[in-house]
Structures are given as C-alpha cells and as structure tokens.
Design a protein around this nucleic acid. Sequence first.
DNA 1: TAGACCTTGGGTAATTTCACCTAGGTGCTA
DNA 2: TAGCACCTAGGTGAAATTACCCAAGGTCTA
Lengths: 204, 204
Amino acid sequence: MTKSIHLALIDDDEAVLDSLCLYLHSQKIATASFSTAQEFLAALQQHKQFDCIVSDVRMPGMSGLDLVRELKSRNVGAPIVLITGHGDVDMAVAAIKVGAADFIEKPFDESRLLASVRNAIEESQQRENFGEQKDLPVKFESLTARQRQVMELAVAGLSNKEIGSRLDISPKTVENHRAWVMERIGARNIAELVRLAMKYDRQS
Amino acid sequence: MTKSIHLALIDDDEAVLDSLCLYLHSQKIATASFSTAQEFLAALQQHKQFDCIVSDVRMPGMSGLDLVRELKSRNVGAPIVLITGHGDVDMAVAAIKVGAADFIEKPFDESRLLASVRNAIEESQQRENFGEQKDLPVKFESLTARQRQVMELAVAGLSNKEIGSRLDISPKTVENHRAWVMERIGARNIAELVRLAMKYDRQS
DNA sequence: TAGACCTTGGGTAATTTCACCTAGGTGCTA
DNA sequence: TAGCACCTAGGTGAAATTACCCAAGGTCTA
C-alpha cells in the first residue's frame, strides 16, 4: 500500500555518501549510491526508477546543476535535491530555476535532507495527480457497475463487511472489487479515493 | 465503530412479526416487536431509541399512517417504513407526503425491506449530517495545532507510520492524536473525515 | 499550587485492510 | 469453440487501524 521510497544519492565524497546512506537506510529508504553523475545516468539507462534524486553540486565531470538540466531535457519526472558545500545565492537561484526541487547547504541536519526529499516527492506526486485529473472521468467511467457500487459505499465509509451485507455478496468479493477500483482509479488508499471521487462528482 | 441498528417493528399479525423478527436478527439487527402502535409509543415514552421504525399500515387502534403523523408531530427523527397488505397508490402517496421513508406492499422480499430500512437510516443520517455542517468550522477550529497537523496528513492519505516519521513522533502518538481528531470532528472513519475536511476547506 | 489540558508513548487485542494467489461460473465475441 | 472480461469467493500473511487501557511531563490558569 504505502510505497517505499527509492532514492538515488550522488556525491563524489565517499564519506558523505556512506554516512547519508546509513542514515537513509535507518529511515527505511532504499538508497542507491553513485560517485558520479555519469554512473547515475548509466543506471537510468538500465531502466532503474527513482522517486527522488539527491546530488552534490560540485563534482568532477558533470556538475549537479548540469545533471538537473540533463534530466529535465530527458523528461525525468523525479524531483532532484541538490546539496553543496560551497553554495551561494546565485547558484541556489539557478538551481531552482532549472528545476531542482531544493538546494541545501552543507553542513545540514540529516533530518533536514529527509524532510526536503519527502516534500519534493509529495510535490511531484501532486503535480502528477494534477496532470491526471483530466482523465479522471475516463477512469471512473471505466468502472463496471459492480465496481462502482462498491466504490460508492466504500467512499461513504462502509467497511468491506458492511458493503458485503448491503450488496449481498461476501466481504471477500467486496475486497476484490475494491482492489480493482483502487487500481483503476489509481488511488493508493481510501483517503485518496474519497478525494478523487469527490472531485469527479463535482466535475461531472 | 459501526453502530448496530436498533429497529422497532410494529404489526398486529403475530406471524409477520415473528418471521420478520427472525430474519432481522439473522442480519444482526436488534429488533423490538410491538403488536400495536400504542405499545410502541409507550416504549418511546420510556426513552427507548430506535434508528428506524417499521410499521404495518392497517392495525386496530392507531393506523400506521396515524403513527407517522404522531411521530412527526413529536419530532421523532427516526425514519418510518410502512408495510401493508392492501395498499393502493393514494395511500402510498399520502404516506410519503406525511413523511414516511418508504411504503412497501406485502408480500415483499425480506431483503427488500432490509434494503429500504438501511436506505432510510442512511438518508436520515445524511440529513443529520447536513444539519451539522454549520458547526463544521467550529469543530475544525477546536483542534489543537498538533491534531490539525496529524489530521491534514491523515486526510492526505498517509499512514500513521508515515505521519509519525514526518512529524518526528512515534506512530503511537499519531494514533492517539488521530483518535482525538475523529472524536472531535465526529467522523466514524477516514472516508468521512476526508469528506468533512474537504467541505471545510471549501467553506472557509 | 492544584486541576485541566495537551503531548508524548507504551501495551493489548480485535478487526480491517492490503497484496498476493487460485479457481469456478457466466456471458460475450472473434 | 476458445478467449476474454467480469463476478464470485476462498486462502495466506503482512500491515494497518481501532478501541480501549495506562502513565509521565509540560503549560496554563483559576
């Protein structure tokens, strides 16, 4: 249900890489480390997916800023958080302008980074949801009659058991329908489903 | 969480009373039987509460229709479902006009009655909720800052664990806050909370 | 200072949801 | 007739929610 976070961490300083990696793992965030931007891009080529990318700015070869530009031109949706030891305002401004999600100066609190990452992911997901809103009617109208019945009762706050007795089917069947609804609508939990259903109701 | 249904069943025909009672019990609905409207009204005097009243129309003494009128004049909110063996359209129209929730002709399928009862209860609850909407801002504004934070993240679809790590408190504490929020807002589950929160957002 | 309230967090137990799976029956269609 | 989508419903196991209980520490106020 709750998707785990897959994060890419890019820094040429091994010590930084290791310490952050340890911390992130302790926060149950799957972290892949890369010493250079090129290494990371190679991983991307192999169809690896990341929910967020954390990269140092000053690195041999491709800089963090260059990486942001490269990813934007490739239409990579994952948010990019830049970290740097020698930042200045202009650099920060430039980073955000080219599309970095955040720009953090070292030394920083590890929890500060984590908060930034989470925030970035949430914002990018919200952007995704926003983009998806236009095919919301399509999604809801693709539901079968049964699925819609189940969805409406679920959104009304009834438990699977209650829905089952209401529709005269087993709670297990309700569960199955519900899972289909979730998948079709693209909701990760009831809260999201309720929100989308309400949006749909208002739109149509 | 899921409130059990307390139902009053009124019919002068013992056979009908017994058979319906049996069925309703099998559906886990607490049912109190009465042979006459007067008996039922006496129970009401003793502060008994019912979520729904199912009554025959043709009965010695007070008729079902009279009962509906009586209850309406007493401002009894519980919905009343009328059942009858010798109904006609006019009677049905009259019944609904005076405020009966439904009017069902015998013989009927037991599940038909059950569906009607549930529908009636749901509608009456929705009316209640509608009446409550005006103090919705009061409820939301009575939340403490922490409770509001937790509520917002919960409504966004995060699990207690996620909320905890986001706010840097234990999931257990989140759970406690969440329970408080539910109680204060008067929501029986997340679906309801999301709906109320969205209403509040739009209102204010 | 005592009481009220908030925040924090632990425990236990029942219930529910979620994510997988299999599988039979129905009805439509290429 | 074979394939497909749908409804049905069961199983397992992990995770989450809910409903209770409890207690300690902080703040604010009568």
